[in-house]
Design a protein around this nucleic acid. Sequence first.
DNA 1: AGGGGTAGAAGAACCGTTTCTCCATGAGAC
DNA 2: GTCTCATGGAGAAACGGTTCTTCTACCCCT
Lengths: 385, 385
Amino acid sequence: MTAAANQSGRRPTTSRRLERAGIRDVAAAAGVSITTVSDALNGKGRLPEETRSRVREVAERLGYRPSAAARTLRTGRSGLIGLTVTTYGEEPFTFTEFAYFAEMARAATSAALSRGYALVVLPASSRHDVWGNIALDGTVVIDPPDQDPLVSELYRSGVPVVSDGKPGNCPVTAWVDNDHEAAVLNILDHLSEAGARRIGLLTGTSTDTYTRLSTEAYLDWCRRVGQEPVYETYPAHDPAAGAVAADRLLARPDRPDAVYGLFDPNGTDLLAAARRYGMRVPDDLLLVCCSESDVYAGTEPPITTLSLKPRRIGTTVVNLLIDAIEGVDSGTGVDVGRLFPPRFRTASAGPPPGTLMPTELIVRASSQRRSPRTTVSPPRLPGEV
Amino acid sequence: MTAAANQSGRRPTTSRRLERAGIRDVAAAAGVSITTVSDALNGKGRLPEETRSRVREVAERLGYRPSAAARTLRTGRSGLIGLTVTTYGEEPFTFTEFAYFAEMARAATSAALSRGYALVVLPASSRHDVWGNIALDGTVVIDPPDQDPLVSELYRSGVPVVSDGKPGNCPVTAWVDNDHEAAVLNILDHLSEAGARRIGLLTGTSTDTYTRLSTEAYLDWCRRVGQEPVYETYPAHDPAAGAVAADRLLARPDRPDAVYGLFDPNGTDLLAAARRYGMRVPDDLLLVCCSESDVYAGTEPPITTLSLKPRRIGTTVVNLLIDAIEGVDSGTGVDVGRLFPPRFRTASAGPPPGTLMPTELIVRASSQRRSPRTTVSPPRLPGEV
DNA sequence: AGGGGTAGAAGAACCGTTTCTCCATGAGAC
DNA sequence: GTCTCATGGAGAAACGGTTCTTCTACCCCT
């Protein structure tokens, strides 16, 4: 074993496969201690600038990259944030179905990155061992169901949790949501002003906050203005069911003359259904749906959409989470209030702080009856105006 | 300090904040050594089933979760896989623009999860410190540009890299791609059979493999059949530019009677442009575009699309990567060939193994002139045959 | 009875950092 | 001259697991 042939401390030279340079190698090469290397590279300690730069240079020359695992172990921070999306059915998670998620995740990733964190995508339903095997500094959950056991466990074990969507019953550090009531009310008023007499709703069967709040706001509005509710529900995760529900809605005897669809694909589904029933949009049917997709700018006619501004939500959620991670020493109460006043979970006192964000209604032809294109004229040729 | 009040080894009782239980706590509670706990929980060592279950039970009771950081430090495996997407312009990465990415990422996440790994989303352009701060077992790169410095550095430092998209010049462990040549040729033949006389192409200005191979295949085909190429290029990351390019293509004096658009939004853009120019689809213009979106099933008319089958790609890429991670001990040649024949980078000998996967053409009304609705129209615009 | 094999479990090194503590040294104050 | 204090830097203890090695019985065989 050729003992006593050590090189830089204690590592035996046996089978010296060319591994990445460690902090000890840098220290040896620079002729200083590992303490000095660490301090120099992290801008800590009391070192003259000359030493610092020399160490930096040696580290650079050796291609030194500190071990993330070791740093995480020592400091307790991994720089990793979980992103949990609610799951439906077979596939681990929906992502594409709703452009909202994709946009939101994208903004969240971006926001995290700019503060030095990275996002780990983790379906809520994934194997427990995967969750346990990752050192997470905090987690973003999207629309957690009531009493989500995963969220509860995370929160209990001291990991900050910020949710997109007002949480039902699970404890979270903070939450962000759109003002869904206001959004729905605004849409219904908008449709009324455009001349709608009977406004229908296409909604979902699930119990998530978005669906529930929106539907309740619709029912409230109906009560207030004295309209009989006209709505159809379907499992929102099933794209085929949406088309069927749209059809059902327009096939009713009390057929509505305006419809708001809560989910992204409702716009095209309703448009197709309207065509099948010979209804012209917006002349016979006013249409609005909630969507982040810009295909609705190009449909015939273009469809008015409600945007939940997912980028804004994603950014806000992540920033709140990182504030919580960095401001509070997560859990035991130690260090609380050193930098921050006790804004975040002083000791689970009171409800978690929530933020409501406005939505944006993008008005297009489908919800404006006074549109200039009065008749069924065929598409205009390039020459005409 | 109340010395000699230690509890389970060496941790001083001083300031015993209620931390998560460690392996030592479990060992103490179960009356065994930490070795035994580790072995029992990981199914190693020689232990009677009785001891195993007892330890498991105690661990469960204490809510013990092994520290991911510590395990990673010791074993050298983090269970984390990076997912790098090419970036354009300001925003960290495109994700929604191309449903392809979203679908692919989703499938990749799913495949990784089912093998016990999680995905970390990391734009190639993100701050270097973020990359350095994460212990990655391997990385998936989507469509790396030639000579990507990031990929090179990763590969050099021993991290397995599998790319979606045949890599230009950067070394990778393996790669997966669609058979783009075959796909384009197939589409052009399909359009020819449907009666196209002059097929145009809407393509991009960037130099990624997809754009390059597809365009070259188109030009080759033109040469072979003796058609003058008719194409317009635009920066694919700019959605507005796409509409303009579509317009340009149909405004040309040598206006094509069929168009293939390489990017997702081209379908709607071309449809809109055709309307503007009074061209009917498919009567005056045959249309195909590459897209994963199912909105093209509902447009008027429905548009034929080429699917790159991103789920299949994502799954394959991840499985190849994990095979490489688990089969080969990354880099030094040690352990190579214990389980696997030297399929993956024996010692950087020869080109990395690549896999070509087929695409799928989803034929809809926009590319079939023999549709029953054809009767009413004068077939060709630009004069006679 | 002695020796070898094996089951069951404990000891301790090690993974690569960060960070707390402490030690020289030299300059200025008295 | 000694005391203090600041400066520059080294030593070594964590962090919390995994795993290689060793140790002790105990049983079986000859």
